[in-house]
Structure formats: C-alpha cells, structure tokens
Computed example of a mutant assay.
Amino acid sequence: MRKELYGLVICGGQSTRMGTDKSLIDYHGKPQRYYVYEMLEWVCDKVFICCNSVQKESITEPYKMLPDLPQYENIGPMAGLLTAFNYYPNRDFLVVGCDYPYITTKDLKEFAKSVNEEKIASAFYNQEHDLYEPLLAWYSQKSKNEILRMYDKSEFSIQHFLNENEAGKYHPARSKNLVSVDTPEDCQLAKENIIRKIQF
C-alpha cells in the first residue's frame, strides 16, 4: 500500500525582487498559494500552506496551514520543511513553491509517480542552469535528520542538501514549465502568457 504523502505549499519569504508577496499574486483567478494548494490536493493525502507569522493572518478556511515554528523563522524555505517534520515526522512531503506559475497538476502527478522511494529526496532538475529546484521536490521522512543536522550547523541551503545527498533528478517532459518568476516584469509576462493559454 502506498505511504501517505503530504503536500506543502511554500509561500516564500520577503519576495524582495518581486516587491510583493509572491503567494498572493493572481495568475489563475485566485492567489497562487491557493492555486498550488488545490493542485496538490490531486496528488497528496493532506495539504498545508507553510507560511510566516505575518502571512498566517490572511490565510482563510478551508485551507490548512503550518506557520513556521519560532525557532525556524527567517531561515528561508528550510523553515517550512523543519516545521512540517516537527508535526509529522513519519510522513513524506511533496513541496511546491509559489514561484512557478506554469507548473500544472499533470507535471506534479508525473513527478510523484517517478519518485524512487529508495532515495532520501528527489527534485525537478533544471538542466539549463544545472541545478535542482528545491521547491519542486519530494522529501522523504529519512531526510528529516539530515536537514536537522544542517540546521544545527547553521546551514540553511536546501540546494546544498540535495547535492550532498545525491537526490534524484527529475527531468520533466515540459521543461519550460520550470520557469521561476521572481520579478515584476516576469510576473506580467507570465500573466499574459497564461491568459493567452500558451502551452509549453
């Protein structure tokens, strides 16, 4: 029987380059954090929005959330993972950030099916930049102790974790959906592309 898989929507931090909270941007008729949540519901048994203390005030029912625990605040996306493992230490997590407006439910389903559960983790791999996408990734319960060890050494890079542990590399069929949108200019272009239903 398949193990339960929990989904995590990573809202992000200060969104400095964007100038506004990326999780609130409307690409698909609703804030991106809710759009991602609803995509994950098709793949996962439970879904949570990982958020900071400010964002949690604006998250409405029926969406479930996991606010960053105080000891993990201000360390980036690792905060969401460590908080989730604190509450659910025996679960695997499928993580999706709010930076990827082109990602589809189909992309996530195909990724979830591809996961090798012998690995400690697996992530979408960006061949163009030769990097993992840490916020499009699966983290097994086995990764908890290693991520905690990094945290104890004040090492907060999930990219580093994925590299050091030789995480699985997933090469998606629609690689252009991996575009991460981080600036107002790219945000406007993404909105226009999505309205025109450009398919990658």
Rank of each mutant, 00 (worst) to 15 (best):
D21K: 10
R33F: 13
L131C: 11
D68N: 09
E185H: 03
T16S: 15
I75G: 06
Y100A: 07
D152I: 12
P31G: 12
N193T: 14
G12C: 14
D92S: 14
K46L: 06
K144F: 06
D107R: 06
F156G: 03
K153D: 06
R91G: 04
I120C: 06
E128W: 02
G13V: 07
L131V: 06
E61Y: 01
I120W: 02
R149E: 11
M150D: 00
K113S: 14
G168E: 10
E164F: 02
A137P: 00
K56R: 09
G80P: 07
L135P: 02
D68R: 02
D130A: 04
I147F: 06
K64V: 09
V43H: 04
Y100Q: 15
H160G: 07
A79W: 00
P70T: 10
K56A: 14
G13Q: 05
W138G: 06
K22I: 14
C51G: 03
S140V: 06
Y35P: 00
N74C: 04
G19Q: 09
L148W: 05
M65R: 08
K56S: 11
K142G: 00
K191D: 14
E128H: 05
I198L: 14
F48D: 01
M65V: 00
I198M: 15
P89M: 10
P184D: 11
A79L: 08
Y87V: 13
N52P: 01
Y132G: 01
E146N: 02
I158W: 02
F48Q: 02
C187H: 00
I147Q: 00
N177I: 08
K113T: 02
Y63M: 04
V9W: 11
V54L: 15
Y132W: 03
M150T: 08
Q55I: 00
Q188W: 10
K109W: 11
L5E: 06
Q199D: 13
S157D: 01
S58E: 13
K144A: 12
K169T: 05
G13H: 09
A123C: 12
A112N: 12
K3T: 15
S114T: 15
G29S: 10
A123R: 03
E185Y: 08
W138S: 01
K119T: 06
H129K: 11
E118W: 13
S180K: 07
A121W: 00
S23M: 12
E41R: 07
